[in-house]
Design a protein around this nucleic acid. Structure first.
Lengths: 344, 344
DNA sequence: GACATGTGTGCAACCGCTTGCATTAATGGG
DNA sequence: CCCATTAATGCAAGCGGTTGCACACATGTC
């Protein structure tokens, strides 16, 4: 069927081991022989079988990339960057979608383990202990998570959340809401921790709503909760939820940012295109994808140090945030702040 | 390092071939032996090495999925559906991004060929002859392309384009523009063919602008061309371009749909969220992903018939299209149709 | 009781490739 | 001219599995 090393050996009149060396250790073969072998290989269309090679070398030149939801716009830029970086190093990537299901994550890591040199676990939902255990079976790099002893690339969402809350408080909002993300998300915990501390420092009230599925629908369905809580500004776990939330608020008759300000996180492409344009915390997803691949591939060289890469985030102020009720025009209890009939 | 079939054999006191059969032909081994082997395997954490198995069986249980641009919102739902469907059949998928580069497509197919049972070529940009050639090296299914002898799943974009043009003509637009997609795209050719024929039948003028990169920027940059051409309605190759185009039109001072109506194709998630909401031709991307995987996996059974699956599209009318100048208020040559100072 | 039949297991070759070791030829030094 | 080096290649084992074949044993049949 397919052309193997034996065919090339036969065609060029050398032993298969010489053909093998021509490709994997060229300096060991005589230049003349080498070029003859290469010519034959070229002519026959020979391509080394990586799986066969991996069997003996232990290196597959494959990487596993596991994400919670491919269709979540946060991930495609990360996947794209990782794939591109991987191919620069002659690696291919398996992509698996775990549907936000921790059990599926474990299953997929194990299923992939034998065919990859390592796995990138992006925003994993499983427990730290399980991740530690898996990392003994296959090299792991986690993205958006921090676990002692596991190489990681994390984005500074805590700093982003702090700046977002400060921004809102600075606009005069005294009652904030945090629409949190899915259970098991390290990012969500970080945001919550940072937002809580920052709100307290700014002397603002913070209502936490969640956990919620990190989707547009997840945001849409909490619009009522936000209004009922009387918050005039909201930080959402991600842009998708923020956008859904805005839809929900508008549907309920509340204006954005007139009645309620909304900040998202991620700065997905979408966020520049909705109306109002979304104020959000930009996360460097492409850089994270590249960095994660680099760490995974470098990891073999130096098992002693487990690096933790930290990437900065940035608050991008657009049109979904505006001044709050402020001290001089306080929203009295009982005031209707939206045609939806919700009291602040 | 890793636990192999030999470890299990030793632990359960049988020959490796019996262990092998326990997993790949259970009916051939005595129930008692089988359960003993399974118990040992379980206890040792044994997992068959698929690459090793593939070496001898020729089945890798992997699929290659090649797309032009992962970050293009059209693809993620397709990838997600394909991945999910593949895993239902116990297959894993490699994802490769070719950056709209035909040469890279060829390279990637060849690089992946040995490690997969087949490749899904989504919206390929390379030539038919090259695809035919590659399909002799590895089972191929093409998505959004039709080539005799190659299994394909195609969406009825021609029908979609027809309905879109009819919609616009029906609104009274006499001068349409088609913002076409990238060179090498079958979809783009289909749209062009269908739009041209439909416009002629409707007795409307059609200006073709392109080829263009199928991105938001690609749409944005042709806004001026559209205005200069004097078209009052536009069909874009995809939603991303349509959205970029709308941005460009608004920036140039033209109203949408007041001055120019815009129709996209794909109905990506984004299109419901922009303002104005985009009128578009919805394509069944998830269904396409599933169907493509099914065809690839079924293909082995029945090499004689090369199926071509055809999926319907649907015109979704939202807010980016409106009445044209109509017969009673024609836009005279010289009329300024937009503050941008463009004559129709 | 001889014989075909079937069941469960072991043996060994093999998938495509790598690699330690042995072998041979060429080279240089004394 | 002999010996130690070095360079280039061949040989064969083995990576983790699968599978055709042979074998041993238990059954059922007449």
């Amino acid at each position: 069927m397919s052309v193997t090393i034996r065919d090339v050996a036969k065609a060029s009149g050398v032993h298969i081991s010489t053909v093998s060396r021509t490709f994997s250790a060229p300096h060991l073969v005589n230049p003349n022989t080498r070029s003859r072998v290469l010519a034959c290989a070229e002519q026959l269309g020979y391509r080394p079988n990586r799986a066969a090679r991996a069997l003996i070398t232990g290196r597959t030149y494959n990487i596993g990339l596991i994400v919670a939801d491919i269709a979540n716009p946060f991930f495609p830029p990360l996947i794209k960057a990782a794939e591109s970086q991987a191919r620069k190093h002659d690696h291919h990537i398996f992509v698996a979608d775990t549907n936000e299901d921790p059990a599926l994550e474990e299953e997929v890591v194990r299923a992939l383990a034998k065919q990859v040199d390592g796995v990138l676990l992006c925003s994993p939902r499983m427990s730290n202990t399980l991740i530690e255990q898996l990392s003994r079976e296959v090299p792991l790099v986690v993205v958006n998570r921090q676990i002692a002893g596991i190489p990681a690339v994390a984005m500074d969402v805590a700093g982003g959340a702090r700046r977002a809350v400060d921004h809102l408080a600075g606009l005069g909002h005294r009652h904030l809401a945090l629409v949190s993300g899915p259970r098991g998300s390290w990012t969500s915990r970080e945001i919550r921790r940072s937002a809580t501390a920052t709100a307290r420092a700014a002397n603002a009230e913070l209502t936490i709503i969640g956990p919620n599925p990190p989707t547009e629908v997840g945001g849409l369905t909490v619009a009522e909760d936000v209004l009922r809580a009387g918050a005039t500004a909201v930080l959402a776990y991600n842009d998708l939820m923020a956008i859904g939330l805005i839809e929900g608020l508008l549907a309920a008759g509340a204006h954005v940012p007139g009645d309620v300000s909304v900040v998202g996180i991620d700065d997905i492409m979408l966020s520049r295109l909705t109306r109002p344009k979304l104020t959000t915390v930009a996360t460097p997803t492409a850089a994270a994808g590249r960095a994660a691949v680099d760490m995974l591939l470098a990891h073999g060289d130096d098992r002693r140090t487990t690096a933790h890469v930290h990437l900065q985030t940035e608050l991008v102020i657009r049109d979904s945030t505006g001044p709050g009720p402020g001290p001089h025009s306080p929203a009295d209890p009982g005031d209707v702040i939206a045609p939806g009939g919700v009291a602040s």
